[in-house]
Write a protein that binds this DNA or RNA. Structure first.
Lengths: 248, 248
DNA sequence: AACCAGTAGTGTATAGTTTACACTAATTCC
DNA sequence: GGAATTAGTGTAAACTATACACTACTGGTT
């Protein structure tokens, strides 16, 4: 393969958009860069893919080093390879996103992890490299995903209330949902276990606690089920005549 | 960046799943390999990405060299980077798919194009490298895409009948659709122009010809519309109680 | 000219889904 | 005991999806 040697001069990396949900808000874990290029800027965690390492394994390694978490939701989203995206050479990066429970996250000892901090996704700007674009692509993928699969529980603690779940959906979809319709839809999926427990120590009527039903969720995935969630139309442009929403 | 030189030893390529529709069947354009590795096997068209070339540009180049076509539907799908996917070294490939009108395709003079041939997607097997997996990923993406966006016209000649359109959908979705419901849904989208012409030289009642309305399609894309198509349930498992198809 | 073969084209009733919307219930705090 | 705060609940109307079968038009055959 000597004739092709000139093509073996590029590097590839993975960048990981690690998402969590906290304080009613979607958060992304960013690293403050300690070196050039973009020294001092915030960036997505990522690293070179080792020569004998699969792509997915590299993404898991980056996640593990930073958060200590394994077996979390991780999905490849898109590859970014503009010629000049890295000032030091041709570097192609494969973007992944992962969903973690912030309650499980504990800051790691590694020097890189010391520089990590959660940022509200909505307020992130001016990241290093083309990382704004990567973050957008991953967050949009999550928006699509949450409408078709119940991935919400990846982001919530084991026990949660329906209101918390709804707030999560609203944060991801950046919209408001109707409480009654949301509950009807969620409960009709039969993917929640009613724990027959309630919140404690809140200064109002305590909410029931639920748990995701992992077995039923496996069935759901196996059968290729999907669902749709639509936003509440309260206070929308009035009388927008919905053109028939389907085509071939 | 000398410390990172060891990472600049891999190559990356693009592979392009070029899809067309002919004789009621989805087709993919494959190349018979003339060299090792996998000499004599069929493979997806692809090539190294040049050092100063963007990924999308590389995919367009591969497509152009093979078909002479530009400005066709082209979309990045997924990146494949298993360590040993290429026997000669670490090669990561970014998979793209494109949709072309086979009627526009004319075999090109280049030596590579001489080795190209259309194959029925359903009957493809035993491709070189991991190309079966890549083809599957791209075809599945198309299946998803066709349910949510009217990309069908990318695959049909400028004038077509509703039955041709329906057959295209059935070929992609690998299912049967109800004629009346299909037509209702399609026409309700208002994306077709009735040309007030009919087929000629057919030994049966001639069908009306339609054209896609590109302007309305642009609006459709801009407004983020989507649609769903469901398969006919004729002859399905009887009385399958549709568990509520939605969740958060 | 009559008929046959073959595909095009059309409507309706039913079931299911989505939407909009407002009040009562349970708890803490004062 | 009352105020504050969030939890929890049902229904009617509009819309969408589905199942289903016959007539219309053309070319070819006799």
């Amino acid at each position: 393969m000597n004739e092709f040697n000139e093509y073996f001069k590029s590097a590839f990396t993975v960048d990981n958009v690690i998402l969590g949900f906290d304080e009613g808000d979607m958060k992304v874990l960013l690293i403050k860069r300690g070196e050039e290029p973009y020294k001092g800027k915030w960036a997505l965690p990522g690293y070179f893919v080792y020569p004998n390492e699969d792509l997915d394994a590299a993404a898991k390694r980056v996640l593990d080093e930073l958060t200590g978490l394994r077996n979390v939701y991780l999905e490849q989203v898109k590859t970014f390879g503009t010629v000049n995206r890295h000032p030091f050479g041709r570097v192609i990066t494969v973007a992944y996103f992962s969903l973690i429970k912030i309650s499980d996250y504990a800051i790691q000892a590694s020097s890189i992890a010391q520089k990590a901090k959660w940022h509200s996704v909505a307020r992130v700007k001016d990241l290093a490299f083309d990382h704004n674009e990567i973050l957008d692509a991953c967050f949009n993928r999550l928006k699509w995903l949450i409408r078709s699969r119940p991935v919400g529980f990846e982001l919530l603690p084991p026990k949660f209330t329906l209101t918390e779940l709804q707030h999560l959906y609203e944060a991801i979809l950046e919209t408001e949902l109707d409480k009654r319709n949301f509950r009807k839809k969620i409960l009709s999926m039969n993917l929640l276990i009613d724990l027959d427990e309630t919140q404690e120590g809140v200064a109002h009527r305590p909410a029931r606690l639920y748990q995701f039903d992992k077995e039923k969720y496996e069935e759901f995935l196996a059968e290729g089920f999907s669902f749709e969630l639509k936003e509440s139309k309260k206070k929308e442009k009035p009388s927008f005549k919905k053109a028939s929403p389907s085509f071939p």
